[in-house]
Amino acid sequence: NITNLCPFDEVFNATRFASVYAWNRKRISNCVADYSVLYNFAPFFAFKCYGVSPTKLNDLCFTNVYADSFVIRGNEVSQIAPGQTGNIADYNYKLPDDFTGCVIAWNSNKLDSKVGGNYNYLYRLFRKSNLKPFERDISTEIYQAGNKPCNGVAGFNCYFPLRSYGFRPTYGVGHQPYRVVVLSFELLHAPATVCGPKKST
């Protein structure tokens, strides 16, 4: 009989979020998941679920829940969905086509923008091939755009693969920082350890 609540607040209220190319993952297990707390949290810009209804989450049990978190621009949030393409979905964070879970995003301009620009948040701009679902690539190898080998030196046709967002408070909404948490639900042939409040007695 599990009684402790799942530590969703640790994920959602973290002081610093990860850059999207180096997205953070927390495994959540052996706890009671009260999703209504999240669902009623006012400032969400997006709360979209795939393969599961957000209002039914509290009735369900899962083997594991993974909480992935990172920061992207407002106009990139739409790429955090199954079957998407674009710089983020291709080179930074890719969801599987059969994704079961929820994508939760909110504007973090007050936290993550600075006058003069916040350059701490990076994304991958160049990559030889697209990421596989949930693949994480933190390499900083110089990207070779031409035929000539770069030998690890940036220059003509040789690019550092990461780019900084440089968030400023005055940017338009599409270019403002958004914090994103992706909850993915794993249902294995194993005992369920993460259940909603109704199922955990």
Rank of each mutant, 00 (worst) to 15 (best):
Asn1Ala: 13
Asn1Lys: 12
Thr3Trp: 09
Asn4Leu: 09
Leu5Cys: 10
Cys6Pro: 05
Cys6Thr: 06
Cys6Leu: 05
Cys6Lys: 05
Cys6Arg: 05
Phe8Cys: 03
Asp9His: 13
Asp9Thr: 14
Glu10Lys: 12
Glu10Ile: 08
Val11Pro: 03
Val11Lys: 03
Val11Gln: 04
Phe12Thr: 04
Phe12Cys: 06
Phe12Glu: 02
Ala14His: 08
Ala14Ile: 06
Phe17Ile: 05
Ala18Trp: 06
Ala18Leu: 05
Ala18Val: 07
Ser19Tyr: 02
Val20Gln: 00
Tyr21Trp: 09
Ala22Ser: 12
Trp23Tyr: 09
Asn24Lys: 15
Asn24Ala: 11
Arg25Leu: 02
Arg25Met: 02
Arg25Ser: 04
Arg27Ser: 10
Arg27Lys: 15
Ser29Val: 10
Asn30Ala: 09
Tyr35Gly: 08
Ser36Met: 08
Ser36Ile: 05
Val37Glu: 12
Val37Gln: 15
Val37Asn: 12
Leu38Pro: 05
Tyr39Thr: 14
Asn40Gln: 14
Asn40Arg: 15
Phe41Val: 11
Phe41Arg: 12
Ala42Arg: 13
Ala42Trp: 09
Ala42Tyr: 10
Ala42Asn: 09
Pro43Tyr: 10
Pro43Trp: 07
Phe44Ile: 12
Phe44Ser: 13
Phe44Gly: 14
Phe45Met: 14
Ala46Tyr: 14
Ala46Ser: 15
Phe47Thr: 09
Phe47Cys: 08
Phe47Glu: 05
Lys48Phe: 05
Lys48Asp: 10
Tyr50Asp: 00
Tyr50Pro: 00
Gly51Leu: 05
Gly51Asn: 14
Pro54Glu: 14
Pro54Ser: 12
Leu57Tyr: 06
Leu57Asn: 06
Asn58Met: 10
Asn58Asp: 13
Asn58Gln: 12
Asp59His: 12
Asp59Arg: 11
Leu60Pro: 08
Leu60Phe: 11
Leu60His: 10
Phe62Ser: 08
Thr63Asn: 12
Thr63Cys: 08
Asn64Ser: 14
Val65Asn: 03
Tyr66Cys: 08
Tyr66Thr: 11
Ala67Gly: 03
Ala67Glu: 03
Ala67Asn: 00
Asp68Trp: 03
Ser69His: 04
Phe70Trp: 01
Ile72Trp: 01
Ile72Leu: 13
Arg73Pro: 10
Arg73Val: 03
Asn75Asp: 15
Glu76Val: 05
Val77Lys: 06
Val77Ala: 05
Ser78Tyr: 10
Gln79Lys: 08
Gln79Arg: 05
Gln79Val: 03
Gln79Glu: 07
Gln79Asn: 05
Ile80Arg: 02
Ile80Asp: 00
Ala81Gln: 09
Ala81Tyr: 04
Ala81Pro: 01
Ala81Trp: 07
Ala81Gly: 08
Pro82Asn: 02
Pro82Ile: 05
Gly83Asp: 07
Gln84Trp: 07
Thr85Val: 10
Thr85Glu: 08
Gly86Ile: 01
Asn87Thr: 15
Ile88Lys: 03
Asp90Tyr: 08
Tyr91Asp: 02
Asn92Glu: 00
Asn92Asp: 01
Lys94Val: 03
Leu95Arg: 03
Leu95Glu: 00
Pro96Ala: 09
Pro96Lys: 06
Asp98Cys: 07
Phe99Pro: 01
Phe99Ala: 00
Phe99Met: 05
Thr100Ala: 08
Cys102Asn: 03
Cys102Met: 07
Val103Tyr: 01
Val103Ser: 01
Ile104Thr: 05
Ile104Ser: 04
Ile104Arg: 01
Asn107Phe: 02
Ser108Trp: 02
Ser108Glu: 03
Ser108Arg: 02
Ser108Lys: 02
Lys110His: 13
Leu111Cys: 08
Leu111Met: 14
Ser113Glu: 00
Lys114Cys: 09
Lys114Thr: 12
Lys114Tyr: 11
Lys114Ser: 12
Val115Leu: 14
Val115Gly: 09
Gly116Ile: 07
Gly116Asn: 11
Gly116Lys: 10
Gly116Glu: 13
Gly117Thr: 03
Gly117Ser: 03
Tyr119Arg: 07
Tyr119Cys: 05
Tyr119Glu: 07
Asn120Gly: 14
Asn120Ala: 13
Tyr121Gln: 10
Tyr121Val: 08
Leu122Met: 15
Leu122Arg: 13
Tyr123Ile: 15
Tyr123Cys: 13
Tyr123Asn: 15
Arg124Gly: 00
Leu125Ala: 11
Phe126Tyr: 02
Lys128Pro: 15
Ser129Ala: 12
Ser129Phe: 09
Ser129Tyr: 10
Asn130Gln: 14
Asn130Trp: 07
Leu131His: 02
Leu131Phe: 04
Leu131Thr: 04
Pro133Cys: 05
Phe134Tyr: 15
Phe134Arg: 08
Phe134Pro: 02
Glu135Trp: 05
Glu135Lys: 07
Glu135Tyr: 06
Arg136Gly: 03
Asp137Cys: 04
Asp137His: 04
Ile138Gln: 12
Ile138Ser: 11
Ser139Phe: 06
Ser139Gly: 14
Thr140Cys: 09
Ile142Phe: 07
Ile142Thr: 08
Tyr143Leu: 06
Tyr143Val: 06
Gln144Tyr: 04
Gln144Val: 09
Gln144Thr: 07
Gln144Phe: 04
Asn147Lys: 06
Lys148Asp: 11
Pro149Glu: 12
Cys150Thr: 01
Asn151Pro: 09
Asn151Met: 11
Gly152Arg: 10
Gly152Cys: 06
Gly152Asn: 13
Val153His: 13
Gly155Arg: 06
Phe156Pro: 11
Phe156Tyr: 06
Phe156Asn: 06
Phe156Arg: 06
Asn157Gln: 02
Tyr159Val: 00
Tyr159Pro: 01
Phe160Val: 15
Phe160Tyr: 14
Pro161Ala: 07
Arg163Pro: 07
Ser164Pro: 13
Ser164Val: 04
Tyr165Met: 05
Gly166Tyr: 04
Gly166Pro: 02
Gly166Asp: 01
Gly166Arg: 04
Phe167Val: 00
Arg168Cys: 01
Arg168Leu: 01
Arg168Gln: 06
Pro169Lys: 06
Pro169Gly: 05
Pro169Leu: 05
Thr170Lys: 06
Thr170Leu: 03
Thr170Ala: 07
Gly172Phe: 01
Gly172Val: 00
Val173Cys: 07
Val173His: 12
Gly174Cys: 03
His175Met: 00
Gln176Ile: 02
Pro177Ile: 02
Tyr178Asp: 01
Arg179Thr: 00
Arg179Gln: 00
Val180Leu: 06
Val182Ser: 03
Val182Gln: 01
Ser184Tyr: 10
Phe185Asn: 04
Glu186Lys: 10
His189Cys: 08
Ala190Thr: 14
Pro191Val: 10
Thr193Gly: 13
Thr193Ser: 13
Val194Gly: 13
Cys195Lys: 11
Cys195Asp: 11
Cys195Ala: 12
Gly196Ser: 12
Gly196Arg: 12
Lys198Tyr: 13
Lys198Phe: 12
Lys198Ala: 13
Lys198Leu: 13
Lys199His: 14
Ser200Gln: 14
Ser200Lys: 13
Thr201His: 14
